[in-house]
Amino acid sequence: MRRLRGSQLVIYTVLILLAGFSLGPLVLMVLNSFRSRLEISMDPMGWPDPFRWQNYVNAWRDASLGTALTNSLMVTGLTVLLTCIVASMAAYALARKRIRAWSGVSLYLLVCTTVPVQLFLIPLFFIFHRLGLVNSRAALAVIYTALYSPFAIFLLRAYFLQVPVELEEAAWVDGASEWQVFTRVLLPVVAPGIMTVALVVGLWSWNEFLLAVTFLQDAALQTAPVQFFRFTGRYVTDWGTMMAAAVIVVLPVIVAFVALQRRFIEGMTAGGVKG
């Protein structure tokens, strides 16, 4: 490693500059969320003096963030719950049951993970419209569940495959039913996988835009990203308030990510590495 050590300084310089590139816009977002319109237009890179916390109060009120965050929580919570249930059941079947159509089912689910939303969006919207399911947060959560469960199934199947069969066999001998074996014996063992799925699917549904903007049109039902999109389309010059609203929507996500980064990264890059 001797030759490389000499170039370490160059390498660290590049890595630090790129870290600045990644964080720079987010730092601007946070700093300017405390500043007034005038201060930002004078110098967008200045330090807040004073810190105008009022921006946050205004953002919360003007962008109806209380309602929007509640909607986001409901949609995200329901999506995570449904996805964990249906995906862990399916993953169990695909890992433990000998199903002749398995390769077909697997291929179908694989295609589902890369299918463009636009391919099913148009008929789905008009069907939901006719069924009165547009402007329903639960219906949106069902769409998300369908969209994200193939990913969750593949991730969880890998976890189920790692569980030794002997573990279930002991329960079978004790006369446990299929459902009991699944819920009492296997689910606790694959809990870390379910946790990863919950975090990743939670992140995706919290941030999702295209389906949310299409299926929730009533302002009182919109999720936080859509509400932010609409709000910033209207108040285009109140940059301080706009950035305060952005911080409110993004902060929970960044805190959760930094605290649980290993699981997030494991889940989001799952399948990306071929070794």
């Binding site: 990644s22 964080l23 977002m29 919290w206 932010f228 960044i254």
Partner: peptide, 15 residues
């Protein structure tokens, strides 16, 4: 380097 990936598109686009 991973953080921008977890920020909602709408937010980073506006920023």
């Amino acid at each position: 380097y991973f953080i921008p990936m977890v920020v909602a598109t709408v937010i980073s686009a506006r920023v």
